[in-house]
Amino acid sequence: GIDPFTGEAIAKFNFNGDTQVEMSFRKGERITLLRQVDENWYEGRIPGTSRQGIFPITYVDVIKRPL
């Protein structure tokens, strides 16, 4: 089901994660935001896939912030 505490964002740019914990994505992908890790990073996942990880806040347009 849908978790009411998650947020939502759209990727503004392609992001290629450097490490296992970073999640790569392509511009235009819809991302579920799980939490804000710190002032620069979100943790999120791509709905319908097993992809999950952290990524820079500046790479996405936030539609709804996670609670």
Rank of each mutant, 00 (worst) to 15 (best):
I46V: 10
N14Q: 07
R45E: 08
K27D: 03
W41T: 10
I54Q: 06
T58R: 11
D3W: 12
L34Q: 05
N40R: 10
R45K: 12
R45D: 02
Q52H: 13
V37W: 08
F5Q: 15
P66C: 09
D38L: 06
E22C: 15
P66T: 05
P47M: 10
F13A: 11
G48Q: 07
S24P: 07
L34Y: 06
V21N: 14
T49S: 09
V60G: 02
R35T: 07
Q36V: 09
R51F: 04
R35Y: 08
Q52V: 09
S50C: 13
F55I: 09
S24Y: 04
Q20H: 12
K64M: 07
V21P: 09
K64W: 05
G53W: 01
F25A: 02
I10F: 06
E22D: 05
I63G: 04
G1E: 14
L67N: 15
V60M: 03
G17E: 03
K64G: 05
I10L: 08
F13M: 13
V21T: 11
T6Q: 11
I46C: 02
I10C: 07
G53M: 02
K27Q: 11
D18T: 15
E8Q: 10
A11F: 04
P47A: 11
R26L: 13
Q36Y: 07
I2K: 13
D38Q: 06
R35M: 07
D61L: 15
K27A: 13
T6L: 10
D3K: 11
Q36C: 09
T19A: 11
G44Y: 01
M23G: 00
R65T: 13
N14A: 08
V62H: 04
G1F: 10
W41R: 07
N40P: 03
P47C: 08
E22S: 08
G44P: 01
G53N: 01
E29K: 01
Q20I: 14
E39I: 10
N16F: 13
L34W: 06
G44V: 01
Q20P: 14
Q36I: 09
F55G: 01
K12Y: 03
T6A: 13
G53K: 01
G1C: 15
F55K: 00
I57M: 10
V60W: 01
K27M: 09
G48V: 02
V60L: 05
A9V: 06
E39A: 12
T58S: 14
G7I: 09
Q52L: 07
F55L: 06
P47V: 11
P4I: 13
T6W: 14
A9I: 04
I46R: 01
I2G: 14
F13W: 11
N16H: 12
R26M: 13
E39Y: 09
F5N: 12
K12G: 03
N14Y: 05
F5W: 15
G28F: 05
Q20G: 11
T6S: 11
D61C: 15
I63V: 10
S24V: 03
P47D: 14
G44S: 00
F13L: 11
N16I: 14
L34E: 04
G53A: 01
G53L: 01
T49H: 03
R51C: 04
F13P: 00
W41E: 02
E39H: 10
